[in-house]
C-alpha cells in the first residue's frame, strides 16, 4: 500500500475500532462503565449492618494494616497469605451467610480481587465488596 505514514496509522487506528465496539457490546453485561465493581456486587456500610450476624467481614488489606485496626470480628484474608488464611475463613463460613470484603479505600483493588477469588476459587456465593472500604467504615463509626 503506497499510503503516507500518517494515513497508514489512521487506517489501523480506525480499523481497530470495529472489533473493539463489537467486543464492548458482547461484554456489556460483564463490566460497568460507571464503576470498577458492578453495582450488584457492591454493598454500603449501612446495608451491610442490616444483615447483622448473617455476615462475615473479610479484611483484604496487608497484615500490618489489619493489625493496626479492623472491623470488629473481621477475618484477615489477604493476597500475601491467601493459602494460609483461607482455611480459617472457610471454617467460619456456612451456606446462606453473606461475605463483605473490604480494603483501605474506594480506589484500592484488593477487595475486588479477593471477592473474585472467593467466588471463583472457593465457590462462595453472596460475596460483596464494601463501598468506600475501610475509610467509609471509619466515617460511619466515628
Amino acid at each position: 500500500m503506497k499510503l503516507s505514514l500518517t494515513r497508514q496509522a489512521l487506517v489501523l487506528v480506525a480499523l481497530s475500532l470495529l472489533p473493539a465496539v463489537g467486543e464492548a457490546i458482547y461484554f456489556r453485561g460483564k463490566i460497568s462503565w460507571q464503576s470498577p465493581i458492578p453495582p450488584s456486587e457492591l454493598v454500603s456500610v449501612d446495608q451491610a449492618r442490616t444483615w447483622g450476624e448473617n455476615v462475615i467481614w473479610v479484611d483484604a488489606r496487608p497484615d500490618a494494616e489489619f493489625a493496626r485496626d479492623h472491623v470488629p470480628g473481621a477475618l484477615s484474608l489477604n493476597e500475601d497469605r491467601w493459602n494460609e488464611l483461607l482455611p480459617e475463613f472457610v471454617a467460619s463460613w456456612s451456606p446462606g451467610k453473606k461475605v463483605v470484603v473490604y480494603c483501605s479505600a474506594e480506589s484500592c483493588d484488593l477487595a475486588r480481587e479477593a471477592a473474585e477469588r472467593l467466588r471463583k476459587e472457593a465457590q462462595i456465593p453472596d460475596v460483596f465488596v464494601l463501598e468506600g472500604g475501610w475509610e467509609a467504615w471509619l466515617k460511619k463509626n466515628r
Binding site: L12, S16, A24, W33, Q34
Partner: peptide
C-alpha cells in the same frame, strides 16, 4: 475508570 474500560476494549485490537 470509563477511559480504562474503553482502552481495555480498544488497545488489544490495535
Amino acid at each position: 475508570w470509563p477511559i480504562s474500560v474503553a482502552l481495555a476494549f480498544y488497545l488489544p485490537w490495535l
